[in-house]
């Protein structure tokens, strides 16, 4: 009998509205849409404060996804697209958002969003997204000072983790925790390519390694690769992680051990950093149009 197929790579799609906030009272209502390679995020901001947001998978057509994720964030709030004073698009699919007034790179948006989520003490932002990994240095206003991007291969990214969790048949939201279930860290697998990393993991499984140990080897490979990036831009406290992979405890813990710096704990889902940053840029853009700044 074949095992019933399950989607171990699938993560939770959701939306949220902050209670006790009323958009009718707000002077400026703006939105940020972050169409990533794997996940799409929308955030609505009232006078610079986060009001509603939604997170979903990016579909095959980014334009459709842009409408879907925006409408989902608006759902139940009574707000309509016409009520939004300004919309800024970001992420890989930013050129395909028909209703965006302006596009801004995800690098600038993540720095700005991290500044909002974690506060002004943030100096180093590590964004681990679906298909790339960026190390960003920023100042106390969330402005980018220096950045480095690695998009040469999906190893060390969220999509790589999806592939891996599917392989070892452990849900992606638990795979990080499982990887910490080892007494000693095994040597890492190859970190130059997702396919090689997966192939090596398969080999280790066939040699009889327990899933936890293989997961540890895979996570360690990702961390090695990420640290390469971080050391290039230089790490300064406070250090934070954004993007979907920030929620993976296996990565966060190993980064802390290997770097000696503890990443700050987020109060909001760090996957939203890009969308929040975009919405804040939209807010600034509208203020500029009004002549307020």
């Amino acid at each position: 009998m074949s095992e019933r197929s399950s989607e171990f790579w699938r993560w939770r799609e959701y939306r949220h509205t902050q209670p006790n906030m009323d958009w009718n009272q707000a002077k400026i209502v703006t939105a940020g849409i972050d169409i990533g390679s794997v996940g799409s995020k929308a955030a609505i901001i009232l006078d610079g404060q986060l009001y509603a947001y939604s997170v979903m998978r990016t579909g095959g057509v980014s334009e459709e996804t842009a409408f879907k994720v925006m409408n989902w964030a608006l759902e139940g709030t009574g707000l309509k697209t016409e009520n939004l004073h300004q919309v800024v698009g970001t992420g890989y699919g930013r050129v395909n958002i028909p209703f965006a007034n302006k596009t801004i790179t995800e690098i600038a948006c993540h720095a700005r969003g991290a500044h909002y989520i974690y506060g002004p003490s943030v100096r180093t932002v590590l964004d681990i997204g679906g298909q790339d990994c960026k190390a960003i240095r920023c100042d106390n206003k969330g402005k980018v000072m220096s950045f480095l991007m690695n998009d040469k291969c999906a190893a060390g990214t969220g999509r790589g983790l999806e592939v891996f969790s599917d392989l070892i048949r452990i849900p992606i939201e638990e795979v990080g925790k499982v990887s910490l279930n080892v007494t000693e860290e095994p040597p890492p697998v190859s970190n130059t390519c997702v396919i090689f990393a997966k192939a090596e993991s398969v080999a280790l499984l066939r040699q009889g390694w327990p899933k936890e140990k293989v997961a540890a080897a895979y996570h360690l490979a990702m961390v090695d690769r990420i640290i390469d990036l971080l050391t290039k831009v230089g790490i300064e406290k406070d250090f934070v992680i954004t993007g979907g992979v920030a929620k993976n405890i296996g990565i966060a813990t190993r980064l802390e051990t290997n770097l000696g710096i503890k990443p700050l704990e987020p109060e909001l889902d760090p996957i939203l950093a890009g969308a929040i940053g975009a919405a804040l840029f939209a807010n600034a853009l509208y203020e500029k149009q009004l002549g307020l700044r």
């Binding site: 980018v144 220096s146 950045f147 690695n150 040469k152």
Partner: peptide
């Protein structure tokens, strides 16, 4: 801002 374009390999 210092924008780094490129990569690091072996």
């Amino acid at each position: 801002m210092q924008a780094h374009y490129g990569y690091k390999d072996g």
